[in-house]
Amino acid sequence: MPLQEVVYCGVCSYPPEYCEFTGKLKRCKVWLKENHPDLFTKLYGDDNGDVAAVAGKLAESSIGEEREEKLEKDLLKLQTKQENREQRELAKKLSSKVIIKREARTKRKFIIAISGLEVFEIDMKKLAKTFASKFATGCSVSKNAEKKEEIVIQGDVLEAVEAYIHSLLKEKGLKDVKVETIDTKMKKKKPEGAPTA
């Protein structure tokens, strides 16, 4: 008996037959249809009609129509609850913003502080590590004045960081999130190429 390869749903991570219990069924169905059409037909039937699916489930269930109905109702409730929650979360994500701040440390040295990332389920530590190797600088996660976590990068890499964050958010499908950059330059730069001597 060889090992079995089990397909896990890309949305809820369960084996697809349990998707109906997660409250994310709609998105799970879409995912399954795109990625494993054969499994989709097996589980939900050829037809997209919900009536057929429900009828099929009733036929193969043994717990009685009445209990099945209740279960069905409970699952529906769970689904709407989950959907509402997701919507709220999305709204929260869209309303929050990422702040990238450039602070002067000494005369010609700057640090970049990025805050407001925690809402987007980004692993701060990991991202700090990526930045550190990307820019070959020191980079760490620390708490700022408001007791919130922020990523601190040593070095003047404001533009590059901004571009990177934008691409990261785009990847997550959150293109509309505001990214604000604050530049706290102490004084105006001297005109380029001005004679120093």
Partner: peptide, 10 residues
């Protein structure tokens, strides 16, 4: 387990 229990088990 029967179908009714899945929800609670999960």
């Amino acid at each position: 387990v029967d179908r009714g229990a899945i929800k609670f088990v999960l």
